[in-house]
Design a protein around this nucleic acid. Sequence first.
DNA 1: TAGATTGTTAATCGATTAACAATC
DNA 2: TAGATTGTTAATCGATTAACAATC
Lengths: 240, 240
Amino acid sequence: MRNPVKKAFPQPSIRRLPGYLRLLRQLRTEGGDRVSCTRIASELDLDSTQVRKDLALTGIAGKPRIGYNLEALIGAIEKFLSWDRITDAFLVGAGSLGRALIGYENFGNFGLRIVAAFDVAEERIGDSIHGRPVRHLREMPALAKEVGVAMGILTVPASAAQDAALVMVESGLLGIWNFTPVKLDLPASIAVENVELVSSLAVLSLDLARRREQAAAAQAGLAAVGGASLRSVPDGERFC
Amino acid sequence: MRNPVKKAFPQPSIRRLPGYLRLLRQLRTEGGDRVSCTRIASELDLDSTQVRKDLALTGIAGKPRIGYNLEALIGAIEKFLSWDRITDAFLVGAGSLGRALIGYENFGNFGLRIVAAFDVAEERIGDSIHGRPVRHLREMPALAKEVGVAMGILTVPASAAQDAALVMVESGLLGIWNFTPVKLDLPASIAVENVELVSSLAVLSLDLARRREQAAAAQAGLAAVGGASLRSVPDGERFC
DNA sequence: TAGATTGTTAATCGATTAACAATC
DNA sequence: TAGATTGTTAATCGATTAACAATC
């Protein structure tokens, strides 16, 4: 009764929603006014039942034979993700990654506005990055209360990550988008989402190595079987 | 018989390996020479059986009661991911994200070296970014063959993504680390790994919204039950 | 009406977690 | 030896995919 443990939404589904949103907005600019799961699935190379289940999370309903109203569907996804209104964020770490994120205007399409940057290097304080001021980290707690910011973006060096995150918590921020590889140790009440760039690189590295092996094996096989010349390996399979 | 379909490694396991590697290297700098799964699991807040299975993928064996040899384990993970040797990469898109990636020296610890950047904006050609030259994209095919590069990093605007990727394929690159939100349409022989920044933002947005709701509900509940003052909400739960 | 599509239930697949024997 | 830890098999859990009735 007390806290009727709301079952969490499947994270893989959540991660697919922005892809749908991007496609749907594009269809809208092309003048469309409705869309089927079949269409979405084929554009994004997914299973249409999966798309239907993902969309159902947002509470939207379609019409058999017709599909979904494009505008309503876009609105439903935006609302579901709270992207129908702007969330202000503070960014800590005005290095090159931090600057790149501040300069990425596209975040506006996803409900995010970075309103200020913070750092501890004196030579950066007072800078303006794409119109956003760089302030000293120690000013964050006072400023956060003043403007009611809820989200923090962490782009400091690994060695500074935990301390900077604690300042965010002190400042009353409720969620942290963590671009460092550090596993932050914070109160359970704080939402943390880690961007694991190097995990992504690991997947690619392994895939690449496997393909190079296969290409090598295929070539060795060809050579062994029939003494086929290297020229017989299709262009797409070259590996040198 | 022909191609004894090698079962792919579980992607979630692959994505955890860099986290292990980072921890193990840190333990090494602290002078350790062995480590147990129990230890790794507790440091990273994982299940120890899961850690054991993940590590088994690399082919390493531990000793009951003792654990794993730290140096051997580090070597096994590096070898498994091909991070025991450097992979050279070309980066396309010398904007702020591209520059940030080039400046991220840490990639060297993960087998990656960005050797050159490419762009199509004349004012960028000839620049040097952290010692790496910026060349015109049209020079890539010739240069790729010359230096034998296998990986491409894509940091162009969405509108240029597909074309730039095709130039990478033409140049003989075998894998693409795609930082754009575009679903690239490429030959199946090319390995593509997408960094879905906005998917990560979606997860955080939803989590943040849920926490704000819960905080609001908790407060409303308190008020309803006993007229408790707002001051009784613990600091960590503040949401305004 | 016929047929494409939705919404939902059931089956399958794959990853995580639990249980436990082997062993240093 | 006793007990912590590995390696592996079995059980559980959750996500994907298949099947199909409802419906516009």
